[in-house]
Amino acid sequence: MPAARFMPYETPDAESVQWDAWWFVRGGVREALPQQLPGWDYSSVETIGVTVHLDTEAIKSATGMQSARDLELVLIADCAPLGRRFVGAASIDEEAEETVDLSVEIPAGEAALQLEVSAHLVLASPGEPGSGRPHLAGSRLLSSQRRTVQLEGEASRFPSEAVPFSAIGLEPAPWTISASFADLNDSFMGSIRLLMNEEHPLARAALDPVANPEAAERLKIDVFRMLVAVVAPDIPECAEQYEEASVGEVVTNMADLYLRQTLVEAASMYRENPLRFERLCYSAVNE
């Protein structure tokens, strides 16, 4: 059954507020809020907002309010999987028509899986009771539709981590691969991790691949080479079937896709003809 919500008091006409456009911020620029938030992880600080147009006169006359300052716009970002919600608020001026940007900041590491965002017009301060008008602080007058934004899912993402190399005793390279697998059949996602040196300018640049495509390209070639290097000592002399999503399977597919070679061939070229490997690697990855 579809539900309609009724307050025990008069509420303004739904058309007196337009919840226009939902947005989020990337690289200092607002972009339309998609169903799946790109490039989000537990280190991201995210700002999500909505632009709201209000007909304050219509609201005042419907609710019998004296001043639009008694109203408040509230943005709720609800993260049910984590049992946590984030609240952003904006006050309203006395203008007859107003456009308000309402936003909320989601701190790093405090959200998971998905957010449900909604915006609300509420009574900010208590008024006089009686006559079927809202008077309790927080009384809801109008609400937007709820929107669901996926933060996490199961789409591929290369395992990686930013860390100051000096703190973990690594030489000051821009990046490296950390590998700990007992066998090439071990899970790739569980045993390989790209470490990005936060102290290195090249790594910092590559962390924003869109803004710094050259750094990103260099990283890509290095990662390709490092992956082959890391498995090369364990490659048997003849091709093998590896378990799904294992180190062996991923690197096998990578060699096939980019070099059109079996892993055995790629590893042997890496060992025996490193310069040719380097050239092929460069052209394949940057195709």
Partner: peptide
């Protein structure tokens, strides 16, 4: 565990 998989990014 050899089949454990952490979140793709960040400190594990």
């Amino acid at each position: 565990h050899e089949r454990s998989v952490p979140v793709a990014t960040g400190r594990v």
